[in-house]
């Protein structure tokens, strides 16, 4: 299958995975492997001085996976830019998943601050993958300032509700000239498949894999769903109709009327 191209990199996998909420670093690492992902997201946080625990980066093979730091926790553009710079200093990589989520209940992204931060970061040489609401106009504006992708949400982060924004996602996909990565709210492999069927270039999944009873099995399920959805998109879906259209011949029945 053709590769996913983001900025100057090519990827075989169209499933990005997040590393949050796993029961252990070992399970996280096994799930990433099982998902066949090549891009994994991480968050930047203060070290707990009283209790500095196991370093999670030790469990991610940096030669195999592109680390995509997010700016989660940022409430405005300034905080997102600060986090991006810290992440770049820590990893030496300039890729960033831009998240600006001032609202703690729905974690919906702030479009104005996101656009502002994206412009600053692109100008400073970052490869910016912005998390946004499924807003086609915002997606175009981000593309215009030079983001590498757009990452519209399917439904609120960690909500597992699936493609609540489908109609808007379809418009974004139709209009985008950068890869569209559907992010957030994909709770089941069928949700991921649906996103791929409507033409998303990739999806990002975290919670649905991390908190499944068997995260490694769920990672495999998502991997297959993403592949199936992509194949279906490329194959071209048959049109829907209200009435039945017989699959079997309507002639030669074993009767004489």
């Amino acid at each position: 299958m053709e590769k996913l191209c983001i900025a100057d990199r090519q990827f075989d996998s169209r499933l990005l995975v997040g590393t949050g909420k796993f029961a252990s670093n070992q399970i996280m690492s096994q799930a990433i492997e099982a998902a066949g992902s090549e891009i994994v997201t991480v968050a930047l946080r203060r070290v707990d001085i009283e209790n500095p625990d196991d370093d999670m980066l030790a469990h991610i093979d940096r030669d195999k996976y592109l680390l995509l730091p997010n700016t989660s926790g940022a409430r405005d553009a300034d905080e997102a830019v600060r986090l991006s710079k810290l992440a770049r200093a820590a990893t030496g990589i300039k890729w960033v998943k831009l998240e600006v989520t001032p609202d703690p209940y729905y974690l919906l992204p702030d479009p104005i601050e996101t656009l502002k931060a994206a412009e600053i970061l692109v100008n400073e040489g970052f490869i910016v993958l912005p998390y946004i609401n499924a807003d086609p106009i915002l997606a175009k504006k981000l593309e215009d300032v030079g983001t590498a992708t757009v990452m519209p949400l399917a439904s609120p982060i960690g909500s597992n509700q699936g493609l609540k924004t489908r109609a808007a996602l379809e418009i974004i996909i139709e209009q985008a000239n950068v890869p569209v990565v559907v992010d957030a709210g994909l709770g089941l492999p069928s949700h991921a498949a649906e996103a791929m069927e409507i033409g998303a270039d990739a999806v990002l999944v975290n919670t649905a894999i991390a908190i499944a009873a068997e995260p490694v099995q769920m990672a495999i399920a998502f991997k297959k769903a993403v592949q199936a959805g992509r194949l279906a998109y490329l194959a071209g879906a048959a049109a829907q109709s209200k009435q039945a259209n017989a699959s079997s011949p309507l002639t030669g029945f074993l009767r004489n009327d």
Partner: peptide
Amino acid sequence: VECDNFGKTKVTNGQKIELVRFMGGG
């Protein structure tokens, strides 16, 4: 301050120091 420069960076009274690292996140 990058980790290569930790040894060269003097600490002075009253400074605000943030120590951060990567954690799991989506």
